[in-house]
Each structure stands twice: as structure tokens, then as C-alpha cells.
């Protein structure tokens, strides 16, 4: 008994200085916690970005692909003045915006149904339906769309079997818009659903109680409260589309070049 007590005493005494320090200077603990990730962030992330920015002011000898370390603004001048780059930037941003709006319009009613209308069971099924495709390879899902949209694909087959002319949207910007909207839809549904779930049912009841019809209550109460989720989802869909270069290669046609494709090709010149 005496031994245990003595041991406990020693232990307490040994831990005391650090504990006291942490307690007296509360900033020490977060500082210790944040130092490794911050160091990583500054060293690896920021440094590489800065280096990348610096190389933007150099040129490359595209014949030998060596970087020539001469300061100049040619790269920026070309991007700003060359109509092809303006076209590509405009197309990329435009389609990203279109995809974001499409996903927002599709995701809201879906997420609303999931969060506010569906039973627990249906909710689980819908959740699985939204998340399950994310487990399949991105490439497999894009290739599936090629099978649907190409000339002898399911879409045209279906159209022709009901006597309609074929819709040749395979390898077009329309196809890219469709595929992007499909691929990123879960990234819009999930944050929107999360935001809607946090809106208490009693707010809808309160609105109805105060004389608002259902649509009015949704518009006045649910939509404003769901905006943070929709914004989060929009950041996902917009930036994911903006940075993508695989879908343009696979389902895009002539004139579907994205910023990402130019970067991808340029990377081999500049690396």
C-alpha cells in the first residue's frame, strides 16, 4: 500500500511542471497542436505555389523543353491577348457555372425530399443511392455515358425505337455538361441535405401556422436556411468542373478543350 502511494505521489510530481505550464499559458497547447500542420503548409504548399508563380515569369525553350530563366511577362501577355485562351477560359468557367446551376436545381428538391419528406427507411435508401456511385471509378462512370450518348448508344436507340430522329450529343459540350452534372451531383446533394436536415420541422410548422402555404414556407424559410449548404455544394461542383481535364478528353468533342487540358499539355512542355 505504501509503495503504491509513494509511486502515485512521484508520478503526480513528475507531471506537474508540464501540466502547470500548459495551464498557465493556454496558448502553448494550440501552438503545439498547430505547428506541424502549419510548417507543412508553409513549406510544401505555399513554397510550391510560389515557385510555380515564379516560373510563370520565365520562358521555356519548347524545342529542348528547358526552362530559360529570363524574367518576362510573355506568358501573361499570351494568356490575356490570345483569343484561343480567352475562349478556353470562357468555356471552362461557363460550363462550370452551368453545371453548378443545374446541380443546384436538381439537388434541392431531391435533398428536400430526403431531409423533410421521406421516411427513415426511404431516406437510407436514397442516401445509399446518392453515395453508392461515388464508390465506382470516375472513369467507369464517364465511359458509361459514352455508351449512352454515342451514335449507336442507348439514347439514340431509344429515340429511334419511338420514332424520333437521333440526337447526336455524343462528343459535344452538351455531353460534357450532362456528364459533369451527373458526376458532381452527389457533391451538391450531400451538403444541401445536411443544411436542410438542420432546419427544424417546427420552423415549417410555424410558417404554416402563421398562414404560409407550403411553397411559401419553403421559399421564405427553408431556402434561406439551406443557402450555406447550397453554397458549399456549389463550391464543390464549380471547382471540380473547373479543374477537370478527363471528361473533356473522354466525352468532349472538337472544341471542348478545358483549362485543365491546356495545363495538362503545357505541363509536359514546362516540367
Amino acid at each position: 500500500m505504501a509503495v503504491t502511494d509513494a509511486g502515485r505521489l512521484r508520478k503526480n510530481r513528475g507531471a506537474a511542471p508540464l501540466q502547470t505550464l500548459l495551464w498557465r499559458w493556454p496558448w502553448v497547447r494550440p501552438a503545439l497542436l498547430l505547428t506541424p500542420p502549419l510548417a507543412w503548409f508553409v513549406l510544401v504548399y505555399l513554397t510550391s505555389l510560389v515557385l510555380l508563380l515564379i516560373t510563370a515569369f520565365w520562358t521555356i525553350d519548347t524545342f529542348t523543353t528547358q526552362i530559360v530563366q529570363v524574367w518576362n511577362l510573355d506568358n501573361f501577355r499570351i494568356i490575356l491577348t490570345e483569343p484561343a485562351y480567352r475562349l478556353i477560359i470562357g468555356r471552362t468557367v461557363g460550363i462550370a457555372a452551368l453545371v453548378t446551376v443545374t446541380d443546384g436545381l436538381l439537388a434541392f428538391p431531391f435533398a428536400y425530399y430526403m431531409a423533410k419528406v421521406a421516411s427513415r427507411r426511404t431516406q437510407t435508401i436514397l442516401f445509399a443511392a446518392v453515395l453508392l456511385p461515388l464508390w465506382a471509378s470516375y472513369l467507369a462512370r464517364v465511359y458509361a455515358w459514352i455508351l449512352i450518348l454515342n451514335h449507336s448508344g442507348i439514347l439514340n436507340w431509344s429515340l429511334q425505337s419511338i420514332g424520333l430522329p437521333p440526337a447526336n450529343i455524343g462528343y459535344t459540350n452538351t455531353a460534357m455538361w450532362l456528364v459533369f452534372s451527373y458526376i458532381w451531383l452527389p457533391f451538391m446533394i450531400i451538403p444541401t441535405y445536411a443544411a436542410l436536415e438542420r432546419v427544424p420541422d417546427s420552423l415549417l410548422e410555424a410558417a404554416a401556422d402563421l398562414g404560409a402555404r407550403r411553397w411559401r414556407a419553403v421559399l421564405d424559410i427553408v431556402v434561406p436556411l439551406a443557402i450555406p449548404g447550397v453554397v458549399a455544394g456549389s463550391i464543390f461542383t464549380f471547382s471540380l468542373t473547373l479543374g477537370d481535364y478527363i471528361t473533356p478528353i473522354l466525352v468532349g468533342g472538337a472544341g471542348s478543350t478545358f483549362i485543365g487540358n491546356v495545363v495538362y499539355i503545357g505541363a509536359f512542355e514546362a516540367l
Binding site: P200, S202, E205, D209, G211, A212, P224
Partner: peptide, 20 residues
Amino acid sequence: MPPHLRETNTVFQDYALFPH
């Protein structure tokens, strides 16, 4: 009759104030 047509108003247990 649906609630929005009834001549009643409710004070909710959790108040259900519109946070925005």
C-alpha cells in the same frame, strides 16, 4: 383545413423562431 387556413396561432415549445 390545413394549418395556414385556421384562425389559430401557436407558441412552440422550442419557439421555432426563424433564425435568419
